[in-house]
């Protein structure tokens, strides 16, 4: 249509008009930012843990490619989330510098980018590993982009409780890559991240409640109030500590993990308790900020120990 309209016009003018509307100034780094590299790190880490502790053998090259597929799939869902949420991202200080609100990438570019990466990551994982893990990856992308971003996020304060499932799937996918199955062990790995998500995000929401309120996102502190959120954070933390210990209790990880998960679980409850003690009208909210920071360390440490416990003996046996 555009070409037909420009027929008969001065050639230079038509090229200029075309370039005004069709040629983007987005650089590859801007597209990379759409993948939410920070979130991707956690996804990759937990997926590696699922893959490493799963019983069975997998060629290292296939394992590496599978992890890459999971990472790209997670990144694709991040791009789709940024496409859908660009209106609210522009208002919140935490997200205003993202590629779409800052004008570096257009919404349609982000959408196409997300869809193309979704397709290639799912397809490649299916061909390289198995179609169960590819199906789980597809469901994860769908859950994050559609169920969480399009539906839950703007409609219920339980958004991150249910939406947390999207972040909890990666270790299950890693497990399925090796075993081609979903077992009770992989469900426990899922449960650790699923129960960890509410206290992690609500701690953030407590000291960023103004941001969420300004765009009308019904986060728990804005809907139920700070006190209720603090109560729920403590309740979820009390649930998380024993669930974090379950892998050792069930016997699919070793004693080191058992000790670390017990100590860190107790520390998590302590930080949640401090947050619970915090005055609801506190302006600085230091205990909530500490809990948020510790929650990240908690998850990295738990899955890090899982990986080390399995990988270290193999490495020692190989090189000593």
């Amino acid at each position: 249509m555009k070409t037909e309209l420009t027929i008969g016009m001065n050639m230079n003018t038509s090229i200029e008009k075309e370039s005004d509307f069709t040629v983007s100034t987005a650089m590859p780094a801007d597209y990379f930012e759409l993948l939410k590299p920070g979130v991707m790190r956690l996804v990759v880490f937990t997926a590696i843990a699922g893959l490493v502790i799963a019983p069975g053998q997998l060629h290292p090259v296939l394992a590496l490619i599978s992890i890459l597929c999971i990472a790209i799939g997670a990144g694709a869902s991040g791009a789709l989330n940024m496409w859908y949420d660009s209106d609210i991202d522009a208002v919140m200080t935490r997200t205003a510098k993202r590629p779409i609100p800052s004008g570096r990438v257009s919404r349609s570019e982000a959408l196409v980018f997300g869809l193309v990466l979704s397709f290639f990551s799912i397809f490649t994982l299916g061909v390289i590993a198995n179609w169960l893990s590819a199906g789980l990856l597809a469901f994860t992308i769908f859950f994050y982009a559609v169920v969480y971003s399009m539906w839950l996020k703007r409609s219920t304060p339980q958004n991150i409780v249910i939406g947390g499932a999207a972040g909890a799937f990666p270790p299950m996918i890693g497990w399925a890559v090796v075993t081609n199955s979903v077992t009770i062990e992989s469900l426990v790995l899922f449960a650790i991240i699923f129960i960890w998500t509410p206290p992690h995000f609500w701690a953030l929401a407590l000291f960023k409640s103004g941001d969420y309120a300004s765009v009308g996102i019904p986060m728990m502190p804005n809907v139920a109030g700070n006190r209720s959120t603090q109560n729920q954070i403590l309740a979820y933390s009390l649930l998380l500590a024993p669930i974090g210990f379950l892998p050792y209790w069930m016997g699919f990880v070793g004693l080191t993990y058992g000790v670390v998960s017990a100590v860190l679980g107790a520390a998590f409850v302590w930080f949640a308790f401090r947050c619970w003690q915090m005055d609801s009208d506190d302006k600085i909210m230091k205990p909530a900020k500490r809990l948020f920071a510790f929650s990240i360390l908690y998850l990295f440490a738990l899955f890090g120990v899982m990986i080390l416990e399995v990988a270290a003996p193999n490495l020692i046996a190989r090189f000593v």
């Binding site: 200029e16 370039s19 040629v23 983007s24 100034t25 987005a26 650089m27 590859p28 597209y31």
Partner: peptide, 18 residues
């Protein structure tokens, strides 16, 4: 316009390479 064009061309080239 030349600057904008150059910027767009540079971005396009970078994307093509990527």
């Amino acid at each position: 316009p030349d600057d904008v064009d150059a910027k767009r061309k540079k971005a396009q080239r970078s994307r093509n390479v990527a």
